[in-house]
Design a protein around this nucleic acid. Structure first.
Lengths: 335, 335
DNA sequence: TTTCACCGCGCAACCAGTAAA
DNA sequence: ATTTACTGGTTGCGCGGTGAA
């Protein structure tokens, strides 16, 4: 009774139950073709022997894998949230997920390569960074869904949030509160950074405030937000929109250390509605991406591509929504 | 040239190169038994056909899987760090990792079940929460390594940090700075919480300070730390040790909102040296777990068990180290 | 009684590779 | 270098037996 004495196979169960291998297979798959009595008996034996099907062999023969590969990055809270949603969505339609992580020392190509060997039926990539051409090549092999990043290529499906609209919501909210001098801390070279930056600029222009809309170079993490805070403290605006929540928390802290009160002196809006942004002590006003909808659509999109003949390229753009919490308020009265 | 027209197999390559299937297999595995010229030609054809080996079929036949299953939890920054280390360690000895996540809606049993189907050769569990008896049962199936959680069972290997010692380091550091009234915010029912709490109590006793060592119920996240802060603010000690960095950041924020200066009025020590704890604006003094060593040992332990006959149970306990940053200082002078 | 569809089941081919002869 | 025998399953087909028409 230890690892090493070989796991039981269909053959073992068949021998013990005195039936053919194929019949055991039928019972295990709950497929038609076995009497209730036999079914009962085989299941009993299988349980006694602690039989567990070998998915490798199963998939090898049946061709279909019902397995989706997901590439995500460690230390991205938003990716964790999306994984949660993807598991739910896949479960619901009887698909399995197999995960491959991008880490500081393991790049995206490696992560994808690992999944390709596993013969997943399709790939779901969270915020892929590799060139669009490479994604397109990949998509000739198997269905590829890119999340959070737009890819202009007919073979690659896209599920993303309307990021420009997200910034519109943020700016509209701030303008409604009375702000005019609003800055944006962008995401540097991150995926979606350009869309959000442009969304900010468009919204400011729409309000006739383009002269007051400063864009500060930021990045993905808290340190980027903190750095932006130091820059903004020189001549602080009354409100700031950010690339993501992580950056926003760094910004928050930096601004407060610089002596400003949030939201009394300055308002801050995050992006992602990460799980920590709703914590009481952070309580960040933020733009929420609809994770469950995105996850469901990404999965069903992938499955469609697996099942069907080549379908038309689709870019699904989900509207974001603004979650107003405690880091935004009307601007301070002029002295 | 689209997904669906079946990926090339060994047979396709063999036909195209006009050799036997087995020979192609030999070439692809870089095994002896093929001439340099043929090798060259076969590789050329394989590349042209865009051939990729089917790892499932390969593993099925060869029996060996060189595949380690890892169960981790989303939204645990420390797990992300450990994943990074595990990938490195596995890479180094030619093993693959397959990941299965625990999410708010996907429990540990489900996560483990998914991996079992994949026929991994061994399982590495990050801070498993399921009962020890269940782990023991699991270990009769395949090698199991529990990380960050001690399991008293001969079949389950353990790689963990000496958590009691971690708290000793923290308390010693604070006492050396002159603190006497020190509180500990524990991890509630989290794995390792009891060890850290006990380590705190022992250290305080060793310094003759047991009368000054208050333990506050905490938990895993920032909100738990924030809640503890509210409790501590009633009659603040001059220093606090915590269950982890996440809780410590919540605590930090709560204390500062309560009007205390850190580290002027009160010192705070975290646990884990999570990637965010070293950010300039957090700059948390913390107890670091030796991630790379732990990851390397966990992987090699698992591999040993796979290869060898049942070996003796081993619990590997790694010493932590204190990382002194900006949240600890001597206590304020008495008024 | 014959005819026949149907049912539970076993046989053997097959999936994509590997290993020994 | 090829041949042959596997790995652990899945699947199409056909077999004998049964009950109804």
């Amino acid at each position: 009774m230890r690892a090493g004495d070989r796991r039981p196979t269909l053959a073992d169960v068949a021998a013990a139950a005195d039936v053919s291998i194929a019949l055991v297979s039928i019972v295990m798959r709950d497929a038609p073709g076995a009497s209730a009595a036999t079914r009962q008996r085989v299941l009993e034996v299988a349980r006694r022997l602690d039989y567990q099907p070998d998915s490798r062999a199963r998939l090898l023969r049946s061709g279909e894998s019902r397995l989706l590969g997901v590439v995500f990055a460690v230390q991205h809270p938003f990716h964790d949230d999306m994984l949660t949603g993807l598991y739910d969505a896949a479960d619901k339609i009887g698909y399995e997920l197999t995960l491959s992580a991008v880490t500081p020392r393991r790049d995206e190509r490696t992560a994808i390569g690992g999944l390709l060997q596993d013969r997943c039926a399709a790939l779901v990539l969270l915020g892929p960074q590799i060139p669009a051409a490479e994604l397109a090549t990949l998509a000739t092999r198997l269905p590829v869904v890119s999340m959070m990043r737009g890819v202009r290529h007919s073979a690659v499906d896209v599920v993303r949030t309307d990021d420009a609209r997200g910034l519109h919501l943020a700016v509209d909210h701030l303008v409604a509160l009375g702000h005019t001098r609003i800055a944006h801390v962008d995401g540097g070279r991150m995926v979606a950074s350009a869309e959000r930056r442009q969304g900010f600029r468009d919204a400011m222009r729409r309000h006739g405030l383009e002269a007051y809309g400063k864009v500060v170079v930021g990045g993905y993490g808290e340190e980027d937000g903190a750095r932006a805070a130091r820059e903004l403290l020189i001549d602080p605006p009354t409100a700031v929109t950010t690339f993501n929540d992580l950056s926003a928390t760094g910004l928050l802290d930096g601004l407060r250390r610089g002596g400003l009160d949030v939201p009394g002196d300055i308002s801050v809006v995050g992006y992602d509605d990460s799980s920590f942004s709703r914590l009481a002590h952070i309580d960040l006003t933020t733009v929420a991406q609809d994770i469950d909808t995105m996850a469901t659509l990404a999965v069903s999109r992938a499955v469609d591509r697996i099942a069907a003949a080549p379908v038309a390229h689709r870019e699904i753009v989900i509207p974001p929504r603004l979650v107003v919490r405690g880091t935004t308020a009307p601007p301070p009265l002029p002295p």
